[in-house]
C-alpha cells in the first residue's frame, strides 16, 4: 500500500481482503444451500443486506422460521458497529457531494473501513471517494459472486475450511491491526498497546455475558473511552 488514492490503487489495495470474502462467501453459500435457500435468494441477500456475519444469522433464523421482527432486530444489533465505523470515516469525505457520501456509506464493510484507516497513515490523513469506491465495489462483487458459487457448488465442496480459507478473514485483521499499530503516528505507541490490551481483556469478560457480536460492539465503545482516559493530554 502507498499514498496513491486513484481508482486503480484502490483495486490493488483491496486485493488481500478478497481472499477473506471468497472464503467466508463460499462458506455462507454452502450453508444457504444446505438450508434449502435458492441461489436467487442468497444472491439478493448478498446484494441487499451485504453483511457477512449477519447473513449467517439470517440464514439460520430463516431455517427455523423465526419471526421477521426478531431477524431484523438481530441484524440491526450485529451491524450496529457499522454506525461507529461510518461515523469515524465520514469526516474524511465532508467536502464531497451528498451522493458520493451515500454511495461510499452504502458499501462500507469492516474490511474496507480497516483498509481505509491503514491508508490514512500513508496519505497525510486524506482519503478520496474514487479510491474507496474501487475497494468497496471489488469487495461487493466478490462477496456476491462467492456466495452464489458456494450455493451452486454446495453439494460438491463439503468443507471449504479444509483449505484454511476460513482463516483468511482472521489473517487479514491480524495484518490490518499490526499495520495500524506500526504506522499510526497520531498516537503514542504505548497508548495503542494499552487500548489493544484493554479491548482484548474486555472481549473475554464480555463474552461471559454476551454473544461475540454484541461483545465486540461493547468492547469497542469501552476501548474508545479507555483510550481517551489513558492518552496524554
Amino acid at each position: 500500500m502507498d499514498a496513491n488514492l486513484s481508482f486503480r490503487s484502490g483495486l490493488k489495495d483491496v486485493l488481500p481482503t478478497v481472499f477473506g470474502y471468497i472464503g467466508v462467501g463460499l462458506a455462507l453459500g454452502i450453508v444457504a444451500n444446505t438450508s434449502h435457500l435458492s441461489v436467487v435468494a442468497i444472491l439478493l441477500m448478498s446484494l441487499i443486506v451485504y453483511a457477512g456475519s449477519a447473513q449467517f444469522i439470517i440464514v439460520s433464523m430463516l431455517l427455523t422460521g423465526s419471526p421477521i421482527s426478531a431477524i431484523v432486530l438481530s441484524t440491526f444489533l450485529i451491524n450496529s458497529r457499522m454506525i461507529l465505523m461510518s461515523l469515524t470515516i465520514a469526516r474524511y469525505f465532508k467536502q464531497d457531494s451528498f451522493l458520493q457520501n451515500i454511495g461510499l456509506g452504502s458499501l462500507l464493510t469492516d474490511e474496507t473501513f480497516a483498509l481505509s484507516m491503514n491508508k490514512l497513515n500513508l496519505t497525510h490523513h486524506r482519503l478520496r471517494p474514487t479510491w474507496l469506491h474501487a475497494a468497496n465495489i471489488v469487495a461487493y462483487l466478490v462477496w456476491a459472486a462467492a456466495t452464489v458459487v458456494g450455493c451452486l457448488l454446495g453439494n460438491l465442496i463439503q468443507d471449504p475450511n479444509q483449505f484454511g480459507l476460513d482463516f483468511a478473514v482472521v489473517g487479514m485483521f491480524i495484518g490490518l491491526l499490526y499495520l495500524q499499530l506500526i504506522t499510526d503516528r497520531s498516537k503514542p505507541f504505548t497508548t495503542q498497546l494499552l487500548v489493544i490490551g484493554f479491548v482484548a481483556v474486555a472481549m473475554y469478560v464480555l463474552m461471559r455475558f454476551f454473544p461475540g457480536n454484541i461483545a465486540l460492539l461493547l468492547a469497542t465503545l469501552l476501548g474508545c473511552g479507555f483510550g481517551m482516559v489513558v492518552s496524554p493530554k
Binding site: 480497516a114 485483521f173 479491548v199 461475540g212 468492547a219 469497542t220
Partner: peptide, 13 residues
C-alpha cells in the same frame, strides 16, 4: 480509537 479498538475486538472474537 475506533480503528484500533474494533480491529482488536474482531481479532479477539
Amino acid at each position: 480509537f475506533v480503528p484500533i479498538a474494533i480491529m482488536t475486538a474482531i481479532f479477539v472474537e
